[in-house]
Design a binder for these strands. Sequence first.
DNA 1: ATAACATACGGAGCGGTGCTCCGCTTGTCA
DNA 2: TGACAAGCGGAGCACCGCTCCGTATGTTAT
Lengths: 181, 181
Amino acid sequence: MRADAKKNYDHLLSVARAAVLKEGAGASLRDIARRTGVGLGTLYRHFPTREALLDALLRARFDQLTVRAGELESSDSTGEALLEWLRETVAVAQEYRGVTAPMMAAIEDPNSALHASCVAMRTAGTRLLARAQADGAARNNIDGVDLFALIGALAWMRDQPSLTSRADRLFGILASAILRD
Amino acid sequence: MRADAKKNYDHLLSVARAAVLKEGAGASLRDIARRTGVGLGTLYRHFPTREALLDALLRARFDQLTVRAGELESSDSTGEALLEWLRETVAVAQEYRGVTAPMMAAIEDPNSALHASCVAMRTAGTRLLARAQADGAARNNIDGVDLFALIGALAWMRDQPSLTSRADRLFGILASAILRD
DNA sequence: ATAACATACGGAGCGGTGCTCCGCTTGTCA
DNA sequence: TGACAAGCGGAGCACCGCTCCGTATGTTAT
């Protein structure tokens, strides 16, 4: 990659991060290019699709979550470990508003730029879940895909302005559907 | 209302119903006007906002649900009554793709065209929930707003193509968060 | 039947969107 | 210092929501 290209790439990414943080996953790409001081074509060359841009924004965090799941696997309380990982994952998933729907779509579309990171994250969660289930801490009528769906649902609810204040309540309610009492 | 106006109104509504059924709540208003064979201005006069259109599309169904809740209040099994109402409500809420977010927003905005119908539906659900709670069938750490949020979450999950096949599973999982075991 | 008027209509126009395509510039390396 | 691949910018296309206003038409009173 040419030096100027790399500079533009990095600058675009940082501007995009700010934009998506403020406007959500549907932020105007034209605006991002403009704010970066770069032509629209440049943005599209570096990030051919919106998903590619989101992927660049999220991959690092997702990898963190995968690592984190590994750490938590050595925790004593399997249930609390699962819950803690859930908490952190939901926090990441809703850091950028409206990012959950593309994630949900990407996980079953191998062509999507987001596919790999999502799958990795889901399998990490599935292992934590399986551990808690083997331990009797989590219900058995639930699998990794369900868990991922519930994360999406939680993030969706947090995205609704009228529900943000109840986010913790709702987390607790869904948690009671995952863990045994 | 003038005769031609009423004809246009009705025709618009039926075309809009088909469009929203196929394309979701974000269907192109221009397209709806075009397919109706009517100017864009005509559509906007009859339905000043997209919410007004959705309201016209949904009000009848919502009223049905409110009535249905009343019927179910005389059921013997308070838990099963709540569950059945939930099932039917989720079915309505996801009949039109993407309609849950505007609903969620409308319920706390008295100026929204959807406000009245949503509030009526929520209070109907709240009564069923309270009845099940008094009976010991439903958990106590949950209120009508939570219930409404969970309905939204279920509809959202159903809207995700990768999850539609698991809709019943997921319903069961969330149900276990509402009902006592 | 006709005249008058409120009501309703249609669509041009504005500023925005995603996305493509291509003539021009610029970094890089022989 | 040239040559050339690599990168750039933005005009242009088709769409979007929404407003505004000159024109047409249903309705009612005469």
